[in-house]
Amino acid sequence: MFELLGELFSYPFVIRALVVGIMVALCASLLGVSLVLKRYSMIGDGLSHVGFGTLAIAMSLNLAPLEVSIPLVLLAAFLLLRISENSRIKGDAAIALISSSSLAIGVVVIAMTVGMNADVCNYMFGSILAMKKSDVYLSVAVSIAVLVLFVFFYNKIFAVTFDENFAKAAGTRTGVYNMLIAFLTALIIVVGMRIMGAMLISSLIIFPALTAMRVFNSFRRVVICAAFLSVICFFIGIVFSFALDTPAGASVVLVNLAAFVLFFALGRIRKLA
């Protein structure tokens, strides 16, 4: 066990994946609590698919992936939020359309240019090799910004999540905070997408929140528990990925699933007791 960990830490790419991944896991879980409770999980899913499309385009044009993806996914976040706030259009159907279209565009672009190779599989399901040195700085900076904003606006985020109408009636500019949550989510998805994979990054948002809610009853505790869970599950998942040579994202998701099952059982037991 210790040998494995020693070996793990001797590779710089693993360290990079861990540093970025842990930051992303932390931020994703914090935002996730709000997104899940607002029934906005679909937005996270949609954004990750849009992210895949932009990544494919960047790759085929030989452009820097993050610099291309970030503005485009932010734009998508703006649109998706607008769509789901507008009750006239069927919100989740529209989001499903956008997300599958982006995915299709990405796959076709890749097939026409670089071809379906191992890289594509990594983009979809994650790889610990994904992080270049230059990516690390940008990713860490983005994560820290997300973290600071979340802590600073924690109370507002609670109020807007719990009861948007009340907050609005009391003069809080709820639209601004909804947009803030959507933008922060977009940033985290783009940054985390290459380690976790475009198909799986949204689980990093959804799982920890759902798991924590099985057991804890106050918003603060759910947030704190989700954050810890997310980081721990990510770490364990990466160790698995390294030891068994499985895709990083998929391994992390499976660990998250195990945690969910455990907490689900705990919650049930607590209810009976």
């Binding site: 719990f162 009861d163 009340f166 907050a167 009391a170 918003f219």
Partner: peptide
Amino acid sequence: YLPQQTPLQKDFPANVMEVVLSGRL
């Protein structure tokens, strides 16, 4: 403002103090 209750709130993880405090926001 006291709204007519929405179903969303009914299963929200928050304690009473958190809810009441949010009125001060």
